[in-house]
Design a protein around this nucleic acid. Structure first.
Lengths: 311, 311
DNA sequence: TAGATTGTTAATCGATTAACAATC
DNA sequence: TAGATTGTTAATCGATTAACAATC
C-alpha cells in the first residue's frame, strides 16, 4: 500500500465540511475544484474515512481508496476552523431548538419497505456520527455516509415532518430520536430468540438491541441437548414454554434460527402466539399469513447469488 | 388448531394443477369458483402446502391458513388423474426437448440486482419441486411458490432466451440448469470463510453450496484462540495465510464474519487480493471500492427494522 | 447581507403488471 | 380441435432525482 505524507500531497475535499483545501495532485499537477457530488471525477480526492464518497483521479488514475488509511480522520478545513468564532457560531446556530416539531403522528402514512430500510440506515449513520461527537449534519453529508442521494433523504424525512433548519441541516440528537419514534423504537419491546447456537454467536451484538429498549427476553431451542444450557445470562428454554413467556409480555418479534423441519414447526407456534414479525435465519422458505412480517436471510442462498457478481 | 376431515369439507383449488374440485364450504355453504389469482378472495380455498397463495373465506372468515396442516400434500385432482392417459400425455409432452435454446450468451445484458435476486429464488423453488419428483412447471405455479407475478417470471426469463413451451410450461431440469448458468453457477467456484464461529454454525448448510460447485475452500480467523482449531474438515488458518490460499485458486467470494475493527482489516486484505464479492455479516458498515460487490446483513439492525412492523 | 440548505414540486427513470397474438 | 400457456408489447405504477422557491 502506497504511503503518502500529508504535507507533501493532496487536494482534500472533506466530506465533513465540503470545503476544498488548496493543493496540487502529485500525479498530474492539476489544481482543485469545488466538488458537490460524490460521483464527480476530480483529481486526487481523498475521502474522509468511513465515507463512501471515494473517487479516483481522472488524470493519473490514482485511486484514493488505497490512500484512505494514510489520511484517516484528517479533515484539514475542520481542524483549521474548529476553534474560530465562525465555526462556533455555525455549530451553535445549528443546535437552536426546532420550531416545527413534525406532522401529526396519527396520519400514519403507509411507508414502503424501502423507506423503512433507509430510515434504519439513517439511524445507524446518525448514531455513529453522534459517537464521534458531532452535533449536526446536512442531508448531503448524511447521504455520503449512507450511500444515497441527498434529495432522497430530504424526501424521506419530509413525509413525517420538518426536522431540519434551512442552511444548517439537522440536529443529530433530535433527528435520531424522531427517526427512532417513526420506526417504533420509542417504546420498549422485546424479542425472543429461537436457536441457542445462533444466539450464542450474536451475544456481543445484542447489546445494541438493548440500547434501543428492545432486548432479548428469552432463548429457546428445539433440541434437548441445548435446553437447560446457559447462553449469556439466559437459560435455554424448551419450545413448550414459548406460550408462557409470550403471554402478557411486550414481545412482538422473534428470531427463528433452527434448521430443517423444526423451523416450520416453531414458526407455526409463533403464528399461534400472534407474533407480529419474524426474522427467519433458518434457510427454509416459510409460508406464513400476511399478518406476520417475515424477513428471511439465508447465508447459502445469498452466497450463490453473489457468484453472479464474480463474472 | 381446527381439524377438518377431507371428505367432509372443502373446495380444493389446487395450486399444483389449478383445477377446482366440487364441494361446499362448511361455514357458509357457498359453492366453488375457478380461481386464477392468489389475491382472489374465494370461499374456503385450501392452498397446497408450501404455496404462499393462502386466502381466507370472504363469507365465514375461516382462514385457510389454520387448516393448512390437515390438507398437507393433498392435491385431489392430481391424485385422481395421475394414472390416466390424459395426465401421462400431458406430462410426456411437457418433457419433449426444447427447440429454441436461448439467446447468445455474449450479448450479456446487464441485469439489476432485483433480477439476480429473483432468479436465485426461482432456482430454489425449482430445486424443491425437483426434489418432490416434479418434471415440469408453469410460470403461474412457480409464481405461487416464489410469491411474485407470473408475468414477471416470464419477463425475467425471456431476457435470456425462450425456455418454455406454450401450453405446457417449463421443464424443471432444463430451466434449472439454464438459470444456474445465468447466475454463473455453471463453472466451479470457491469461497473463503473468515470467522470460525460463524462457519461452525453453518456447517450443515454449506453442503448446499457444494451441490452447486461452490464449496468452502478454507476457514480463517483473526483470534489466536481459534487458529488451529478444527471446523468440520477444516483447520482454522490465520489471516496471514489469506494471500497464499487465494493465489491461483478459483476463489472469488468471501464470507466476512468477524466483529469490530478486525472486520475492516480483513476486508482490506480481501480487497488487496482482488476478491470480487463479499458477504458481510460483521455488522460493520464497510466502505469498499465499487469493484467489489458487497452484500451486508446485520441481525441486530434487521431486528430493529422489524420493530416498525410490530405496530 | 450573501450563501447554504431545507422542504417540495415536477421530471425522470425503472420496475411491474395486464393483455394478447403466437404457439403448442 | 379447443384450451392452455408462452413470449412480448403497451400501460401502469412507484421510486428516485433534479430543480428551485422559501428559509435561515
Amino acid at each position: 500500500m502506497m504511503e503518502i505524507s500529508l504535507s507533501a500531497c493532496g487536494i482534500y475535499n472533506c466530506l465533513d465540511c465540503r470545503y476544498v483545501a488548496n493543493a496540487t495532485c502529485p500525479g498530474c499537477a492539476e489544481g482543485n475544484k469545488h466538488l458537490r457530488d460524490a460521483g464527480d471525477k476530480v483529481c486526487a480526492v481523498f475521502a474522509c474515512v468511513e465515507s463512501r464518497g471515494i473517487a479516483s483521479c481522472q488524470e493519473c488514475g490514482e485511486d484514493s481508496c488505497v490512500l484512505r488509511r494514510s489520511v484517516e480522520s484528517i479533515c484539514p478545513v475542520r481542524s483549521r476552523f474548529e476553534n474560530t468564532r465562525w465555526w462556533a457560531g455555525r455549530m451553535a446556530r445549528a443546535l437552536e431548538p426546532r420550531k416545527c416539531a413534525g406532522k401529526e403522528a396519527d396520519s400514519k402514512p403507509r411507508m414502503s419497505d424501502r423507506v423503512v430500510n433507509r430510515l434504519r440506515w439513517y439511524l445507524t449513520a446518525l448514531d455513529s456520527l453522534a459517537e464521534q461527537g458531532e452535533t449536526s449534519v446536512s442531508s448531503w453529508r448524511l447521504a455520503q455516509r449512507v450511500g444515497v442521494n441527498a434529495a432522497l433523504i430530504r424526501k424521506d424525512l419530509s413525509r413525517f415532518g420538518e426536522f431540519g433548519t434551512p442552511s444548517f441541516g439537522y440536529r443529530i440528537d433530535y433527528l435520531s430520536q424522531r427517526i427512532a419514534a417513526i420506526l417504533g423504537l420509542d417504546e420498549p419491546r422485546g424479542v425472543v430468540w429461537i436457536g441457542a447456537a445462533c444466539m450464542r454467536l450474536h451475544l456481543q451484538s445484542v447489546g445494541r438491541l438493548a440500547k434501543h429498549d428492545c432486548g432479548v427476553v428469552a432463548v429457546f431451542d428445539a433440541s434437548p441437548e441445548e435446553v437447560g444450557s446457559p447462553v449469556g445470562d439466559f437459560e435455554v428454554l424448551p419450545l413448550e414454554k414459548l406460550a408462557d413467556v409470550l403471554a402478557g409480555s411486550r414481545v412482538s418479534a422473534a428470531v427463528l434460527a433452527l434448521t430443517g423441519p423444526a423451523a416450520a414447526k416453531a414458526a407455526d407456534m409463533l403464528v399461534e402466539q400472534q407474533i407480529k414479525a419474524v426474522l427467519n435465519l433458518s434457510g427454509e422458505m416459510l409460508a406464513l399469513p400476511d399478518s406476520v412480517k417475515v424477513c428471511s436471510f439465508d447465508v447459502v442462498g445469498e452466497l450463490l447469488e453473489l457468484c453472479h457478481y464474480c463474472r
